[in-house]
Simulated assay, not measured.
Amino acid sequence: MTTRRHGRIMVWHDGACPLCQREIALMRRLDKNGAITFIDASAPDAPQTCPLDPAQMLERFHAEVDGEMLTGAAAFAAMWRVLPLLRPLGLAARNPLVLRWLEALYVRFLRVRPRIQRFMRERRW
């Protein structure tokens, strides 16, 4: 895998999802220090850029920090920690109870994500 300086994070996202596109656009704007490498797991070259099967990468949010692959709320929290505006939330997620609560919210979100995506596609957001 690519060697990076300490504190950098790789984030895989669904570039075909209108909801994800908006979220990643916001994260790019907040990433003033260029600490995040964003990788589209839905791109044609995804098999070469994903450490796991691209379909698996698209099921949940994935991030790699210092060689450790994180998913779900833990991946979001790691990304938030490198963004000055969201760093407090990312640091709070180091508490196991907070992370467990965020993961429960994320799992609930995953259940409604297809409906939100469909709504956004229909409205061309």
Rank of each mutant, 00 (worst) to 15 (best):
R94D: 05
P47E: 13
L85S: 07
H13W: 15
N95L: 10
L91F: 14
P51C: 01
G72Y: 00
A46I: 15
R87K: 14
T2K: 10
D45Q: 13
R5L: 02
A43N: 10
L86R: 04
Q21L: 07
R108K: 11
R60I: 12
R87L: 10
G7H: 14
L83W: 15
D66P: 00
A35G: 05
D53H: 09
R124E: 10
R124H: 11
M57W: 01
L91Y: 15
A104E: 04
L110G: 00
P84W: 15
L97N: 02
Q117R: 15
C50A: 08
D66F: 12
R113D: 02
D53C: 03
C17F: 06
L110A: 05
H6D: 08
R94K: 13
A77R: 05
L26E: 12
V65L: 02
H13I: 13
R108M: 04
H62N: 03
H62E: 03
L70A: 05
H6G: 01
L86N: 04
M27T: 09
P114S: 05
A16H: 10
L102C: 03
W80R: 07
A41C: 07
L97F: 14
A73D: 00
E23M: 08
G67W: 15
R123F: 10
R124S: 07
P114K: 12
N33W: 15
W125Q: 06
L83A: 07
V98I: 13
M69H: 08
W12A: 07
R81Y: 11
R113T: 08
F76K: 02
V98G: 00
F109T: 03
D53E: 10
R60D: 01
V107K: 01
V65H: 04
E103V: 13
R115Y: 11
L19T: 12
L97M: 08
A104K: 06
L102R: 03
Q117K: 14
W12C: 05
R118N: 05
W125D: 03
W12E: 06
A25M: 10
L110W: 03
A46H: 13
L83C: 05
L105N: 07
L58C: 04
L30Q: 12
L110Q: 09
